[in-house]
Amino acid sequence: MSAPITPGAPLRPLIEARGVTMRFGGVAAVAGVDFTLGEVELRCLIGPNGAGKSTFFKILTGQLKPTEGTIRLRDTDITGAEPHAIARLGVGIKTQVPNVFNGLSVHENVFVAAGRRKSLARTRAIVDETLTRLGLTGIARSLVGQLAHGQRQWVEIATVLAQEPELILLDEPAAGMTHDEVHRTAALIREINRTHALIVVEHDMPFIRMIAKTVTVFNQGRILVEDSVDRVLADSRVRDVYLGKQAA
């Protein structure tokens, strides 16, 4: 079983998945995954394409209902709950393909995310703070649909932060970014991690090295290994699955 490895992690996990399985017809995209994340923990998920990482994210956020297994967020069973209900419990996600409001301005994107059940003054404060934090103030009035891919990624991260979640899921946050943007993203993730728990899916190994403490490796819907970043990246099995050497 995957007990929290991080030294000093609190006893009660933030999120706990037990035996989560997702079948599409005969294919099990996720097969019996046990996954635990502590409060304010940063975890990286890696694995080859089709390993089930994004499917696992969709299950955590309620976009897919698992065929089997349970997911608990602190004391709440969120298995199969509606996405908006899970979001209200404090889970935010940047999806792999950016989901942003293309026809709205950057400011409006963040405003809508920040404004749920909050006073106007509080909402505006959050919007200002988030835009400044992500360096989006200069393009606040631009239409998101007209921005470059990297900028759209940042807008999406801004909307996720603006909703003030406790657990943040980032699916390939560095994809399509320039070298400089990747570094800024890594710095941002480390900064967010001071107060928030994160799960980050990435393929970019240098990026993983910049941010990761603990890494979970997915392969063929299962957890292959879960260990500290140095040991995982030195693991021959991990190299094999990335290079496709492992026999099916």
Binding site: N99, F101, G103, V112
Partner: peptide, 17 residues
């Protein structure tokens, strides 16, 4: 504003809550 946001991207609106 939320109504218009949902028109723009229902998934994102849902993931915001």
């Amino acid at each position: 504003r939320v109504v218009v946001a949902i028109r723009e991207n229902e998934t994102r609106a849902q993931l915001i809550g």
